Amino acid sequence: MTADGSVEERKPTFLIPSGSSSSKMVLRGQVLELECITEGLPTPEVSWSKLSGEFPDKRTSIVTFQKILRIVNVSDADAGEYRCTAHNRLASIHHTIRVTVKAAPYWITTPRNLVLAPREKGQLICRASGTPKPTINWAMNGIPIENSPEDSNRKVEGDTIIFEEVQTGSSAVYQCNASNEYGYLLSNAFVNVLSETPRVLTPANQVYQVIRNNHALLDCSSFGSPIPKITW
């Protein structure tokens, strides 16, 4: 208070966060909240901006008298530098917050079950993304693949297992584990090596009723391993 009894005006200062810059990490899909609490007289006005782009309109809100910037369902594009500006008629100050977006693993491609005939080829693909990049580990029948019996017809190349000329008796369940420091994913795929003689599944002597001068569709369902070739 001044000598004449009036309240002394004060330039804006930051109470939260302190200093001129800070950093914050948020996980993909979560809610990002940036807080900016100031002090000064007259009461400072607070505004927000993103230095490296625009706010996502449908996912952004500024609440609590402009003190909190909130972005829901965070994506990789939300990373960057955000600036909180506080000003009154005496001065204007800034605080920059560097936001990094990390991500638990999420699937790009999950391995699918395989049905192979002896001496056929095939592959299992297990691809996941995340930040940092997930590590892919394979297991066979619950045992880490590096500890499983060796198979010269099977080759592991990172996120892919390649089968060459599979043999009868090499059926197994394969597990893919994609993990980083923020989480993990598991997926199973069954590789079934079958040797089955072809057989027709469509009932014999089936009668079809068709309209003259129209198309007729005759069905010939079959099963076998390798997949049978159908001729008419």
Rank of each mutant, 00 (worst) to 15 (best):
S20R: 01
T64N: 15
S49A: 08
L34E: 11
F65C: 10
L27C: 01
K58T: 14
P56S: 04
Q30T: 13
T64C: 09
V31K: 08
V63E: 08
F65V: 05
L27F: 10
S75H: 10
G19F: 13
T64V: 03
D76V: 03
S21R: 06
G19Y: 04
S22M: 02
L69T: 10
R59V: 15
A77S: 09
L51C: 08
C84D: 08
G80F: 00
P42M: 02
V63H: 02
R83H: 07
L34N: 14
E39S: 06
A77F: 07
Y82A: 15
E35I: 03
V46M: 11
L32M: 06
E45A: 15
P56I: 01
Q66C: 05
E45R: 07
E81G: 03
I71S: 01
G53H: 00
L69N: 13
V74S: 00
R70A: 11
S23Q: 08
K24R: 10
W48K: 10
Q30G: 14
E35H: 04
A79H: 05
T60I: 11
G29P: 05
V74H: 00
L34Y: 04
L27S: 05
V31E: 11
S61M: 14
K67L: 05
S47E: 05
L32W: 01
K67N: 11
P42S: 09
W48N: 01
E39A: 11
E45K: 09
W48E: 01
S21E: 12
P42E: 01
R70M: 14
V74D: 00
S47C: 13
E54Q: 13
G19W: 03
T60C: 10
G80P: 04
L41G: 08
I68C: 04
P44I: 14
S21M: 07
S75C: 15
G53T: 00
K58A: 12
S23D: 04
R28M: 06
K58V: 13
V46R: 07
A77W: 07
E54W: 09
S47L: 13
F55Q: 00
S52P: 07
R83S: 13
D78L: 02
I62S: 11
S75M: 03
A77I: 10
Y82G: 15
P56T: 06
V72R: 02
I71M: 06
L41Q: 04
V26D: 14
I37T: 11
S75E: 09
I37V: 10
T64R: 08
F65D: 15
E81I: 03
S75L: 09
P42G: 13
G40W: 08
A77L: 13
V72T: 11
L69Y: 04
G19H: 12
E39Y: 09
L41R: 13
